[in-house]
Design a protein around this nucleic acid. Structure first.
Length: 470
DNA sequence: TGAAATGTTGGGGCG
DNA sequence: ACGCCCCAACATTTC
């Protein structure tokens, strides 16, 4: 047992896998006590396969960051409460610090942990490190949580946002004895046979270094045209920061701070910058919704949709998943997702609309496919966005807003560059036919005919939605 | 952070 | 010169 004066503080890492702008880590550092950084893999909470791929890279990176400040990362598997109990017992820790999470499972975990530690007379401190504004802080005039984005956004703009990031600790004190740690390789987070993630590393480099370089890249260039190009999958105009934000390799405050200073320095940026900040607040809004309505992860926000006549069509669902629907913009998106673990946001809306409206397959099936295949899979964003598209969510798109996949393609991928990149079978089609290959007079190779006719499917969707209106 | 159907207008071809 | 039709082009409403 270590002496009373240098009992360590456990810093429990979750979706905050960084050492920069990390309030919990910083607070522990300030206490001048030894610090035990720990990450716990909890198999009760199913992380998607693509996210597990990412997680491995993140943990390697975090371990390296911690080693650079003279520390380590302890890895454990199991139920967090039990693992932490065990760590406390064998290290004599006097406190546990962590960043709060907002997913229902994690909220519950935090509550139980606090209760448990309180009984044991061990300090439990929760910090906020993953959002700009805590969900409880934003309230309407009547004191309720928001269900509509715009008033939520306006309320946020009237609030003081702390945007001065906290520096990383220079050096951490080690405990007298390090607790045992699992070997990361033994967790087998990455696929081997078959290695469907083989291409991921061409597109991504998980960890804070990758995050910082993407952020710099975005702030110094793309952000100036963000308002104009963010909807253009052929232009690469988005930030691609989503996975870094999800895993907390980048703190939203740091992003916010960087965008604001770019805004001040250069007026040309302000339109793009403002548009981007708005998107950052959509992320906040999703968390706000999930926190106040935890059930949205698994059921309709509007319960009028509970009787919606979803179809159970495995064949269509499969065609959608593998990008063989016959609609080029949809297929391009689904293949980009499979190959890179990511999809452009405009295209996410198109494929989601196609699944829920043209195919009448439940948003939950789409959400769970996204959950498994996206490297940025995030319970708040995923649930809120799918429900938004399907029409059953808070402040949702009206049910009759059915994207025409042809028009959407022609509008947002006018030269067909995006489609040609991801659907090579039809890359030789002219711009005139690239989004409507079935009208092309020359026979195509293996590319399928549309699995549903747009006009027919649209009418079917309208009828279905009509049927649940009281 | 739509699209289709329907309505309206106005220019030009043409008898 | 005039009326008529056609149909873009734009506006409105409907889903």
């Amino acid at each position: 047992m270590p002496s009373l004066f240098n009992r360590p503080i456990v810093v429990w890492f979750r979706n905050d896998l960084r050492i920069n702008d990390h309030p919990a880590l910083h607070a522990a550092f300030k206490k001048n006590a030894p610090v035990i950084p720990i990450y716990i893999l909890n198999q009760e909470f199913k992380i998607g396969s693509a996210s597990l791929w990412w997680l491995e890279g993140s943990l390697v990176a975090l371990r390296k960051s911690l080693e650079s400040i003279n520390s380590r990362l302890i890895l454990r598997r199991g139920e967090p409460l039990e693992v932490l109990h065990n760590i406390i017992k064998c290290s004599g820790a006097k406190a546990i610090y962590f960043s709060r999470c907002y997913e229902p499972t994690f909220v519950e975990q935090e509550k139980n942990l606090a209760k448990f530690l309180n009984k044991k007379n061990i300090e439990c401190r929760r910090f906020s490190g993953s959002l700009l504004i805590e969900p409880e802080m934003v309230k309407s005039k009547t004191g309720n949580a928001f269900k509509v984005f715009t008033p939520f956004y306006n309320a946020c703009l009237n609030m003081e946002i702390i945007n001065e990031p906290i520096p990383a600790p220079r050096i951490l004190l080690s405990p007298d004895e390090w607790p045992k740690s699992d070997k990361l390789e033994s967790w087998r987070l990455r696929p081997s046979q078959p290695n469907w993630a083989a291409e991921f590393s061409r597109y991504w480099s998980p960890g804070s270094i990758g995050a910082q370089s993407r952020l710099k890249d975005f702030i110094s260039g793309k952000i100036y045209n963000y308002d104009k190009y963010r909807d253009r999958p052929d232009r690469n105009g988005t930030s691609t920061l989503s996975p870094y934000l999800h895993f907390g390799e980048l703190s939203p405050r740091e992003v916010y701070n960087n965008v604001c200073s770019a805004n001040i320095l250069d007026n040309n940026c302000s339109l793009g910058g403002k548009a981007y900040l708005r998107e950052l607040f959509w992320r906040e809004f999703s968390y706000h919704l999930l926190y106040h309505w935890p059930k949205i992860a698994g059921s309709n926000f509007k319960n009028s949709f509970d009787i919606f006549p979803w179809r159970d069509d495995e064949e269509c669902f499969h065609a959608w998943k593998v990008g063989m629907t016959g609609y080029p913009i949809v297929d391009a998106g689904m293949r980009q997702l499979w190959k890179t673990g990511w999809m452009h946001n405009r295209v996410r809306m198109i494929v989601a609309s196609f699944l829920t409206k043209h195919l009448l397959i439940s948003w939950e099936k789409g959400a769970s496919w996204f959950w498994d295949t996206l490297v940025d899979a995030d319970l708040a964003n995923n649930s809120a966005s799918w429900q938004w598209v399907a029409g059953c969510g808070a402040d949702a798109a009206p049910y009759f807003r059915i994207f025409n996949p042809i028009i959407q393609g022609e509008k947002f991928d006018p030269e067909g560059d995006y489609v040609r990149e991801w659907v090579p079978e039809i890359c030789r089609l002219s711009n005139k036919f690239i989004h409507r290959p079935w009208e092309n007079p020359i026979p195509l190779g293996n590319y399928p005919e549309p699995i549903v006719d747009h006009r027919v499917a649209r009418q079917r969707a309208l009828n279905a939605y009509q049927s649940i209106k009281r």
